[in-house]
């Protein structure tokens, strides 16, 4: 099981750089987003309690990028389904769960890569930690857990649609609003009533708040342990669902 999972994770990582669309999504796109937000919107957004918008933005941007990190899983699984590779894997003496476990494990590696790219971009335009090393590392660990939880959501999406194109569409429509109606890019207080309540209970907000207090100092509140609970709940919900979908996909 473990060696099958590693083999399949390696496969997902080896093929990634050969797919120009995906490579751009993990490298150039996050840099572009940081620059657009920081310099187009940044001047117009008030972030009381934070040094400047760039400090406020970087944790939010990283959370958003990590939430989308599982896209490779959705696209990859949808592609494997349509191209018959899932049948090949099933016909091999390979642990059944390893196809999903390998994909989601590969996402952890790509998430780490996007995190580094975003942090470096952040440093270049003036982002600074206000934290000690354990706090910084705790933030990284929390982000990876959060990304892993979202990978399982994407795994379910990838196996619920008929094609990689559909996975792309469904993924964006579902995940984009979740990341935007949150404290990731603007203070929740600036949103109209209704939207604000949604943003308050959104796990993305909880996650961003926890990360900001870990990396920038400030009031922690419940956000850290609440984010961990959220991640666990998402994994407990979506991992079994993904495994079930995988089993059913052959019509067995």
């Amino acid at each position: 099981m473990i060696s099958d999972t590693l083999t399949l994770a390696e496969r997902a990582l080896v093929r990634l750089p050969r797919n120009p669309d995906m490579l751009l999504a993990f490298t150039v796109q996050p840099i572009m987003f940081v620059l657009l937000f920081a310099f187009v919107f940044g001047g117009a957004i008030e972030t009381p309690g934070y040094g400047d918008y760039i400090d406020f933005l970087i944790p939010g941007m990283i959370v958003q990028q990590i939430a989308f990190g599982g896209f490779a899983t959705a696209l990859g699984l949808a592609e494997d389904m349509t191209k018959g590779l899932i049948d090949r894997f099933r016909s091999l003496p390979t642990a059944r769960a390893s196809v999903l476990a390998g994909r989601t494990l590969a996402d952890v590696a790509t998430n780490l890569l996007s995190m580094v790219i975003l942090l470096v971009t952040g440093f270049v335009i003036g982002f600074r930690f206000d934290a000690n090393v354990p706090e910084i590392l705790a933030g990284v660990a929390l982000l990876l857990l959060f990304g892993y939880a979202f990978s399982w959501i994407f795994a379910v999406i990838g196996m619920s649609v008929s094609s990689p194109e559909a996975a792309n569409g469904v993924g964006f429509i579902l995940i984009f609003p979740i990341t935007f109606i949150s404290s990731a890019f603007v203070p929740v207080e600036s949103m109209p009533a209704g939207l604000r309540q949604v943003a308050d209970v959104n796990p993305v907000s909880t996650m961003v708040d926890a990360l900001r207090s870990l990396w920038l100092g400030g009031e922690m509140g419940n956000s850290l342990w609440l984010s961990v609970v959220w991640c666990m709940v998402l994994i407990a919900l979506f991992a079994p669902l993904a495994v079930r979908k995988y089993r059913l996909s052959a019509g067995a």
Partner: peptide, 12 residues
Amino acid sequence: LAGQYAAVDENL
């Protein structure tokens, strides 16, 4: 098993 869709990973 070799299927009708030539199940190889195109990116490998």
